[in-house]
Amino acid sequence: MVKFTKEMKEALRVPGKGGSLIYLCTSSRDGNPNIAAMRFVATHMDDKILIADMFLLKTKANIKENPDVAVTICHPLDEGRWWVFKGKAVDMEYGFPRDFDWYGANATDILNEWGNWNKAEPPDEVPPDIVFPKAVQRGVVVVHVEEAYSIEPGHVGEKVLEG
């Protein structure tokens, strides 16, 4: 079981709170990769990354057929946030059994705390020509992280977290 560092937990928050814009990388079951930027991000326990399901299309379809994902920092990189987190994801949508468990993360706990993310952490820092007019959240993607490697120039591929 991995354990996020303090720096990782600080980075894996919404940009408006000093966190990061992240890329969520998924793949279809037959290996068609997909990469999409995400703003609503948080950590849960010591080894889970949470991401709001607001506008997910291909990402959502991929997770439903293949749980293997990678999460990496898109911006800012220059603060030492050179990590790629790899693990297994599920999209905990409304309607999931409330006792659903994903590697120790409970659906009731997750949806109660993060189910109305736009209200809890509104995207005040997002530029007006990018911000969405209305956020409709359908669930929370929970990534159970199993390992992480570096993408820092000169150290690419080195393990920074290992289960």
């Binding site: 814009l21 068609n32 930027a37 898109c74 911006h75 530029p127 490697y149 591929g157």
Partner: peptide, 29 residues
């Protein structure tokens, strides 16, 4: 660089599909 190529070469040799997005502020802009 060598270490960067080493991470993706094994997968790429069996599956040439690539997806990419712009880094840094480009992720949003």
């Amino acid at each position: 660089a060598q270490d960067e190529a080493k991470v993706i070469a094994p997968a790429l040799s069996k599956n040439p599909r690539v997806a990419f997005g712009v880094s840094r502020q480009g992720g949003i802009r």
